[in-house]
Structure formats: structure tokens, C-alpha cells
Design a protein around this nucleic acid. Structure first.
Ligand code: SF4
Ligand code: SF4
Lengths: 154, 154
DNA sequence: TTAATATACGACTTAATTAATCGTATATGA
DNA sequence: TCATATACGATTAATTAAGTCGTATATTAA
């Protein structure tokens, strides 16, 4: 799984909307500024997310975007899959975008790629905007200290 | 982590060489045929791997490529990192290609991406060609049945 | 009513990466 | 000495990612 900027931008904005949930719409201008996303680019992303039913828009003065679903009803997996298409590291181990490979029956390393995909897919599929939002931002000392991550409020 | 074709090709060939380890060189033509890799493309990949010290070449008749290191001394992580550059899903959680992001201190989902990167990085770093080779190819019924993967000879 | 402010949306462009292909040089050994 | 092998830079083709632009339309506060 490689996160494109588009997906990263989408997630940044979604969490801003989660934080503001129930307190009225936020205009794109503000969403773009707060999350350092190019505004014209974000327009397309928001439109896309509106079509998916994750957000809703209110035009006119005082308008902007709001979350359209409960934060517990949208998962990281859905968002990443929508924008990047695939969660697996390669097509032959993808559930949603499976692509057959002629080497499957003899391939020695497909197994480990499947392990990676299974872990990541399960992690992302059970991670709702709500549950992820509750976890605090990563503290510097935690970075690359794998021991500290296990069962860590995820 | 997204596996490029180049990396996939490199790994296919490496495992062919592991299988043939100690039984003389295999010409590129044969490596390309057996693994369904475009031959001219493979030349560059092999050259690249030779520079890394993973394989060695013998020119002339009866020539070809051999493994230059013990299969237990090369990891999947090294290979993927060499060709794809990064194991992490995004720069802000990469150990080898870290890229600072201005949102780090407020980002809510960096934590879960870090979790994904830590799992995948550890998995790939401890997976040597030897240990992975010992695991049998994936049986069809195992695909997407995560329960069957745990501690599964990896 | 109307001016200001908002989203809507297709068309377009640019940049970057990936995946090759080609020509030719050089080394080896049967 | 010739058949067969790797060496390697140059080039191209294809795909995807990232971002911009122009303009249309909807809403509402003054
Ligand atoms: S070679 Fe193995 S890992 Fe690569 S695509 Fe084929 S089956 Fe999957
Ligand atoms: S927004 Fe969060 S996840 Fe994305 S790059 Fe910045 S810190 Fe990393």
C-alpha cells in the first residue's frame, strides 16, 4: 500500500471535519488552508467524497462542507481503496483488485506478501474515522519504536 | 509498500537462483523465460543486483548468473528497498526515506500508518531468501484467510 | 433584488515514474 | 575464431499522479 497525496489530502480533511462534527460547515478555503492542500485540487477531492456519501456541501454564504456520515461509519480502508484503488502491495494478493499471475503456483514470496496485505487490510478495515480520531497524534519518541504500537488504541 | 514490476521480477529471479544454488550459472535467457520477464529489461535488473553484490555473472559459453551471497544473507526488505526505495506507505513514517510533514504534530492518522509500516518493515527485514524459500507456495484455499498466516513459517 | 460567496465540473496541462527497447561494446571458452 | 555470454548508455513509450483553469450555478445575507 502506497498512499498518494490525494488520499493523504482526503484523510487530512476528513479528520478536520470529524473534529468539527456537528458545528456547521467549513468552507473549502478554510479546509485547504488548515491542511495545506491546494484549493483547486481539493475541490475535486471533495466532490469525489460527496459522491461517495462521506461529506455533504452547503452552497452560498456560510456554506461549506460537513461530514455526512457518522465518523464511526467510515473506515480508513474505504477511503484509501477509493482513491488509491488497492490496499495490497501487488495485484495477486488483492481481494478487491485481484489480478492473476501465471507464477502463482510456484511463487515462493507470494505468501509473505499475502501476510503483509492481510495485516494492513485488517488494520485499515477496522479503523474508523472515529476510532482513529480518538488516538492522539504520534509522539516523537514513539516513531519507529514498534513495541509501543501493539494494541495501542487502534 | 507497493511492489513495482521491477521488484517483482527481481524477486522471481532471485528465488530461481536460490533454488539452483550451487549448481552452476543460469543464463539470462533462461531466467527470463522461466519467470516470464522481458529479457532486455532483466539485463538491467541483473546488472543492478550484481552491483549490490547479490548475484555474480560468468560471461562466455556456459555462462550466466549465480547467487553471490548465501540465501540467508539477503532479505526481502533489502531487495524491495533497493528497487522501490521505500517500505513505508508514506514518507512521514519511513525510516530510510523519511520526509518531514508540517502536519505531523496534529495528524491523527499518522499513528496507524506507522503501525502498518512497522509491521511490514519488520516482516520484510527478517525475511531472508532462505527462510522465505522454505515456505511452500500459497495454496488456493489459504488466500485471504488471514487466520492461517500467523507464524506460518515466516 | 442583488452582490457576495459558495460549490460544480469538465477540460486541460504538467510532472514524475514506470516499464520497457535498442544498439553496440566487450569478455570468455569450447 | 566464432558462438555465446554479459555490459551499459541512450532512448522511448505508457501510465499515473498532481495540479490548474474557466465558467456555470446555487444560496443567502444585506
Ligand atoms: S510472481 Fe509471485 S508475487 Fe509476483 S505477481 Fe506473481 S504470484 Fe504474485
Ligand atoms: S498528513 Fe499525517 S500522514 Fe500525511 S504526511 Fe502529514 S503527518 Fe504523515
Amino acid at each position: 500500500m502506497k498512499l498518494s497525496k490525494k488520499t493523504d489530502y482526503a484523510l487530512r480533511v476528513l479528520f478536520t471535519l470529524v473534529e468539527h462534527h456537528g458545528r456547521g460547515p467549513i468552507p473549502i478555503r478554510e479546509l485547504a488552508r488548515r491542511n495545506e492542500v491546494p484549493k483547486r485540487f481539493l475541490e475535486h477531492i471533495m466532490l469525489d467524497m460527496k459522491a461517495k456519501g462521506w461529506v455533504d456541501s452547503l452552497p452560498g454564504k456560510q456554506g461549506g462542507y460537513v461530514l455526512a456520515k457518522e465518523p464511526s461509519k467510515v473506515t480508513m480502508g474505504e477511503v484509501i481503496r477509493h482513491f488509491d484503488g488497492i490496499l495490497a502491495p501487488i495485484g495477486c494478493v488483492s481481494a478487491t483488485h485481484y489480478q492473476r499471475c501465471s507464477q502463482e503456483s510456484v511463487c515462493r514470496f507470494r505468501r509473505i506478501l499475502l501476510d503483509a496485505r492481510n495485516y494492513v487490510a485488517r488494520l485499515m478495515e477496522q479503523a474508523t474515522l472515529a476510532s482513529v480520531f480518538l488516538g492522539a497524534p504520534v509522539k516523537e519518541r514513539e516513531v519507529f519504536a514498534p513495541g509501543l504500537m501493539a494494541g495501542d488504541g487502534i
